[in-house]
């Protein structure tokens, strides 16, 4: 086994300068590890057909897209489609909001979910754990459109439940929909409530996947619950935490791991709130309402993807330096 590997490595070294070596070792690798590559094949085939083939459509970003002429028949126009976004004075504001909310939500969701995943093991009853987990997951099933109704039911000025409570306590009703500052808190809160259940479920799976041997050994050594969490659970959860954060980072400019539906629906498109609720996707959606131009929307999509890619490549490089096992690739 080991012999084989070192032989291959030696061969690689020897032929490093010859051009056709790469091809040969590729074939060798395929032959030697054929069962693994066979396992990859169906998924890879799917990704090539359904993800990579349509990707050529991204050239629309550089074209004056005419649906009748098709993607290839349309005229090339360079970077003209990018202009509307970068020339607008809102570009900075929405970029800031996008980063602000993403970072805030990434950190909060991760910390709370990991905490919940660990504490869910400590409720003292498997039954209770199961109930909590199911209930926590429930908001995840509600779409943001339904969410809009719920938030409106809670916050509308005249008949909202929150203002009802405030009135019964002798406090003045608050006009939630016309003061942007509240939404700096409402948006992350709504997002958390929907997302934490889902992310916790992933971490719970990771925690239950940890072999009980570790804990037994620690118990023999007299480790406390806190110590077990600190020295066993959290380190073993780290790879999953890192992978989820990397994935999220990649989409930071493009909806995050969740979706921007919240930012579109919950504030009910109230113009007064835009200073704190407008993110790149909602801004683009709004600007293209009448123009309805595929070229311009894919230009912004492409920009978001490129920034995401750069972010991930940098962070992946850093992760790899410290813990190569946890890196994305």
């Amino acid at each position: 086994m080991n012999n084989n590997l070192s032989a291959a490595a030696a061969a690689q070294k020897r032929f490093k300068k010859t051009g056709f070596l790469h091809h040969r070792t590729f074939l060798q690798e395929m032959v030697r590890r054929w069962p693994f590559y066979l396992m990859i094949l169906p998924g890879m085939l799917y990704i090539v057909i359904f993800n990579y083939l349509p990707m050529f459509g991204a050239v629309i970003a550089f074209k004056d897209y005419n649906p009748v002429k098709g993607i290839w028949g349309s005229k090339w126009i360079g970077f003209k489609n990018f202009e509307f976004f970068f020339k607008s004075d809102a570009a900075w504001r929405v970029t800031f909001n996008t980063i602000f909310y993403n970072l805030l939500i990434i950190v909060l969701v991760t910390v709370i979910s990991v905490l919940f995943a660990i504490l869910l093991q400590e409720t003292g009853s498997r039954m209770r754990t199961a109930v909590y987990k199911s209930v926590m997951l429930m908001p995840f099933f509600l779409s943001w459109i339904v969410g809009e109704y719920i938030v409106y039911a809670l916050l509308n000025t005249d008949q909202g439940l929150v203002n009802g409570i405030r009135k019964s306590l002798g406090l003045e009703a608050i006009d939630w929909y016309s003061d942007a500052i509240y939404w700096r808190f409402i948006m992350p809160l709504a997002y958390l409530l929907k997302q934490v259940g889902y992310t916790s479920v992933i971490y719970v799976a990771a925690v239950t996947g940890i072999s009980s041997d570790y804990y037994e050994a620690a118990e023999i050594d007299g480790a406390s619950k806190w110590q077990k969490a600190r020295f066993i659970t959290i380190p073993l959860l780290m790879p999953v935490v890192i992978i989820l954060m990397l994935l999220w980072l990649g989409k930071i400019f493009n909806g995050g791991l969740g979706d921007w539906g919240a930012f579109y629906n919950l504030p009910r498109e109230s113009g007064i709130l835009f200073s704190s609720t407008d993110v790149i996707d909602t801004y683009v959606f709004r600007s293209l309402r009448t123009v309805n131009d595929i070229g311009m929307s894919s230009a912004v999509g492409l920009y978001q993807a490129v920034v995401g890619l750069v972010l991930v490549l940098i962070s992946n490089y850093l992760v790899k330096k410290y813990d190569s096992d946890s890196s994305l690739f």
């Binding site: 993800n51 083939l53 349509p54 990707m55 050529f56 459509g57 991204a58 629309i60 649906p67 993607i71 990649g250 989409k251 493009n254 595929i294 929307s297 894919s298 999509g301 492409l302 993807a305 995401g308 890619l309 991930v312």
Partner: peptide, 8 residues
């Protein structure tokens, strides 16, 4: 990260 959009 990258997709070609709905049309293709």
């Amino acid at each position: 990260l990258f997709n070609g959009g709905l049309a293709p």
